[in-house]
Design a protein around this nucleic acid. Structure first.
Length: 490
RNA sequence: CGGGGUGUGGCGCAGUUGGUAGCGCGCUACGUUCGGGACGUAGAGGCCGCGAGUUCGAGUCUCGCCACUCCGACCA
């Protein structure tokens, strides 16, 4: 039943977009490139937020909030940073409108021009480091471990629901440390948090690694990332963590007095994941029937559907269903009893499959007679008749099993779609099949650019866990210390 | 920003050589149904994306614009 998505979809992007809309997650808005996240989509995002937020707190971080607007001059303080973001900034130039002189609508009041334009944050390093200058004087003030949940705007030319929108929701952590070692450790710690989150909650296996210089965050010394593989064979960068060195500390003159009484520049990190994770979730697990949500992030983990004719039957079934609902809730399962009478059970089945609800329980007259309940799992679409006793315990176990199975399935898919190649010809053939390719690269941006040019493949990361196996660059034949991961990416 | 597609009740679509708008789903009411997207009967619901133009007359023809979507370039 649940065929691989790629087996039946000619145009994966179109399929993805339709699914996002049909499942009620999001839709495009009247504003170019922007997205409306609908209640069901937002409910999933809230689950993601809650899980991440707890992980941040558990690693010593606190939340704060910084302004949406950044004075233009701030952005230009760090040279690489401004170069990376200048092309995609929305800029506020005026603070007032007036009635149009020709009587038609409103125009910008030329008298209300701002002395300094304000950039709508594409990321908050600059405004935050300008603020940190006032917070940090002594080594006793360090480390600063702050996260913010916010929206940012990047004026992209081409947008896709969740994967790339002009405005998106994310969290961005910005930390300040006394030493290089501590900051590097923080950046590594947070990429590990992301990897842990992706695997545990999203059921998404990820590669952890470092970006090459050309893929690095603008202003970073090192960018760590998690990379996931989608069902169409394309890679998706699901989160990044940056070691920023002293670049921003120097740009915003953030120094502290060390234990030894010396003035030192602070060391920085920043790290973020966005609503793009929603895209990853959808593209990694969905099948022909719709979404497949990992139980840990499903706003609704189980649904009970009655099958009945007439009020008398419904009454008895409802009593039993509500009892099951209470038992499930007592075990911490989010469950809904759907006794709507304007749609039939078959319709409900299809609807909850589209929405990715992990477990469905159906009770009809036969079950009432036999003391059974039909249990259907979304990941495999298998159905099973089980006794009503102990059903709650069974469901909680099943939810765990589904979570594990979705992960295992995604991991198997990744394994099937990861290849090692040695020659550039093999690489060119392999890249057409999609998936990750492990190959040797000479470490130069020139070779990297040539490969991208000729094959549209980019180096997703230099894998952290890759074996140290020396070889020769597939393009130039120069020596290489380890294989790097290539793919076509979103 | 280039190239394609689409834009008509809430949703999905049809609409012929130009003649004053229709179908399916959904919605409302009543009835019959109910173990995988039910059926009957009766209703309600339209600035035909926006703006000009041609014409006695435009959903239909012409020009311009806009939006969404797909494919490129840019990027998370």
């Amino acid at each position: 039943m649940a065929k691989e998505v790629t087996n039946r979809v000619d145009n994966y992007a179109q399929w993805y977009n339709d699914l996002v809309v049909k499942a009620g997650l999001a839709e495009s808005s009247a504003v170019r490139g922007c997205m409306v996240i609908k209640p069901y989509g937002y409910a999933i995002w809230e689950k993601i937020q809650a899980a991440l937020d707890k992980m941040f707190k558990d690693t010593g971080h606190v939340n704060a909030y910084f302004p949406l607007f950044i004075p233009k001059s701030f952005l230009s303080r760090e040279a690489e940073h401004v170069e990376g973001f200048a092309k995609e900034c929305a800029v506020v130039t005026h603070h007032r409108l007036m009635n149009s002189p020709d009587g038609k609508g409103l125009v910008v009041d030329p008298e209300a021009k701002l002395e300094e334009e304000l950039v709508v944050r594409p990321t908050s390093e600059t405004i935050i480091w300008n603020t940190y200058k006032g917070w940090i004087q002594s080594y006793r003030d360090l480390p600063v471990l702050v996260n913010q949940w916010a929206n940012v705007v990047r004026w992209e030319m081409r947008t896709r629901l969740f994967l790339r929108t002009a405005e998106f929701l994310w969290q961005e952590g910005h930390t300040a440390h006394a030493t290089r070692e501590e900051a590097v450790a923080e950046a590594e710690k947070m990429v590990n948090v992301y990897a842990d989150f992706a695997e545990t909650f999203l059921a998404l296996p990820v590669l952890v690694g470092k970006k090459t210089a050309s893929e690095r965050f603008a202003g970073a010394e090192d960018t760590y990332c998690i990379e996931a593989l989608m069902q169409d064979g394309k890679a998706l960068q699901a989160g990044t963590s940056h070691f920023l060195g002293q670049n921003f500390a120097k740009a915003f003159d953030v120094q502290y007095v060390s234990r030894e009484g010396k003035q030192e520049y602070v060391w920085a990190t920043s790290w973020g994941v966005s609503t793009r994770l929603m895209g990853a979730l959808i593209m990694a697990h969905s099948d022909n029937c719709g979404l497949v949500l990992p139980p840990k992030l499903a706003p609704l983990q189980a649904v009970i559907v009655p099958i009945y004719k007439g009020d008398h039957e419904l009454e008895a079934i409802s009593a039993k269903a509500n009892e099951m609902k209470r038992q499930l809730e007592a075990l911490g399962v989010t469950v809904k009893y759907d006794d709507r009478d304007n749609v039939r059970s078959g319709f409900k089945f299809a609807e909850y499959e589209l929405k990715g609800v992990p477990v469905r329980l159906a009770i009809g007259p036969r079950d009432m007679q036999n003391g059974t309940v039909e249990v259907a799992r979304r990941d495999t679409l298998q159905k099973q008749l089980l006794p009503q006793e102990n059903i709650a315990a069974h469901v909680t176990a099943l939810l765990d099993e589904i979570q594990a199975n979705i992960y295992a399935k995604a991991k198997a898919f990744r394994a099937e779609n990861t290849a090692e190649v040695s020659s550039y010809d093999d690489f060119k053939a392999q890249i057409e099949k999609g998936g990750f390719i492990l190959a040797h690269w000479d470490g130069t941006p020139e070779t990297e650019a040539k490969i991208k040019d000729e094959t549209k493949a980019t180096i997703r990361c230099i894998p952290r866990d890759g074996k140290r196996e020396p070889g020769c660059c597939m393009v130039t034949g120069k020596p290489s210390a380890q294989r790097v991961v290539f793919a076509r990416a979103y």
